[in-house]
Amino acid sequence: MMRQSLIIYCDESDDKGEFYSHFYGGALINARDQSTLTDLLNLKKEQLNIHSEMKWDRVTASYKDKYIEFIKYYFEFVRDGRIKLRIMFTQNINQARGLTDEHIGNDYFLLYYQFVKHSFGLRYCNGGHVSTQVTLLLDDVPQTSSKFELFKDYMSSLSAFPIWRQARVTIKKDDIASINSKAHPVLQGLDIVLGSMQSRLNEKHTRPPKPRARRSKRAVAKEAVYKAIKDEIWSLYPNFNVGTSTACAKGVEERWSHPYRHWLFKPNNSIQDLKRGKRKKPH
């Protein structure tokens, strides 16, 4: 019986997309693996002759193969459980009702709260451990320092959530920080996966922007990187539809045990507006 320390790297992308919005991603590791994973991923970048930060937005035709090789290496750690990846997003056809100005103004933090609270299944993480301490490292928080302080208060209150308290899982306010992803290759890998999902689901790299008849070389390169990521996911969950939530066929404990999961978040009391979907009615 012992204590464990976990780190969750957090990122977000595309507040508003054409079909899907509010993309949030997390990469969970054991704190004892942080240094090793950082060194190994940085070494891989050196071998690929990549000396700058890796991001989905930086995928180009000339770097396509390097990104594919890096992401295949990254998923080796996902498969062996040293990195757990979670992706959350909303679908625009599900429209929330009864939102106040406060809800709308704080949606960034409110959705992060839901993401951390549920997507990793932390209530099931303890197993034979006495307790678990969780550190949250968020990529470049786009908020004022005062708002971020309020967010840390709000997020650390999860420790008082009855189910978490019973499971002996805590997040201390001092263990929530905004970081620069340049120094964290685990977060860079997450950015690539998260960016590929928002790009694919919003059809950014799959069709040419009007009035062009062809896609750019960069869009074709991004499609190749996305397909490499999809193949890695399908090696874990054959034929998984990336626009849906990952099932828990053997019980909700799989929210913790699975190496990779998606969560299509549907707000409470939401209604469907099919005009916001991909299959629009003809005029």
Rank of each mutant, 00 (worst) to 15 (best):
P142V: 06
G189F: 01
V134M: 15
K172F: 04
P209W: 00
D175I: 12
A224Y: 08
K182T: 11
G121E: 11
V220E: 08
G128P: 04
H129C: 15
T90V: 14
E203S: 04
A160F: 13
S159T: 06
T135C: 06
G195C: 04
A219M: 09
E203T: 03
V134D: 02
K147M: 09
A213H: 14
K117Q: 07
V134H: 05
K227H: 11
D140V: 08
N92K: 13
R214H: 14
G195K: 00
R165L: 15
I192H: 03
N94D: 12
H118W: 15
T132G: 06
C125A: 15
G128H: 13
L138S: 10
L122W: 00
Y226N: 05
L201A: 00
R218D: 13
F151I: 05
E102A: 14
N92D: 09
L122Y: 02
N92E: 15
F89P: 00
I179W: 00
I233F: 02
R97Y: 13
K217H: 14
I93P: 04
Y124T: 06
H103M: 15
I104W: 13
I171A: 05
A221Y: 02
R165E: 09
S196E: 01
S196F: 01
L99S: 10
Q91Y: 14
K152W: 14
Q91V: 08
K204C: 07
K217E: 13
L136C: 15
D101S: 14
L99T: 11
Q143M: 07
L99N: 13
N126H: 10
H184G: 12
R215Q: 07
I229H: 00
V186P: 00
D191K: 03
H129K: 10
K217V: 10
R214T: 09
L190P: 02
V134G: 01
A183C: 12
Q91K: 14
Q133K: 06
S178H: 10
N202A: 00
L136T: 02
P209I: 04
K210G: 12
R168I: 03
A228P: 00
K182L: 12
Q166P: 14
H118P: 06
L110M: 12
L194N: 01
Y124N: 06
E232N: 05
I171E: 03
A160K: 11
V141R: 02
G189C: 12
T132E: 03
H184Y: 11
H103C: 12
V186H: 00
D174W: 07
L110E: 14
P162S: 08
N202D: 02
F151A: 11
Q198L: 04
L158H: 10
S159A: 12
K182D: 12
R212N: 08
L111V: 14
I176G: 01
A183I: 12
D175C: 12
K217F: 07
S196H: 02
M155D: 00
K172W: 02
K204T: 09
Q95D: 10
A96Y: 07
P142M: 11
F89Y: 07
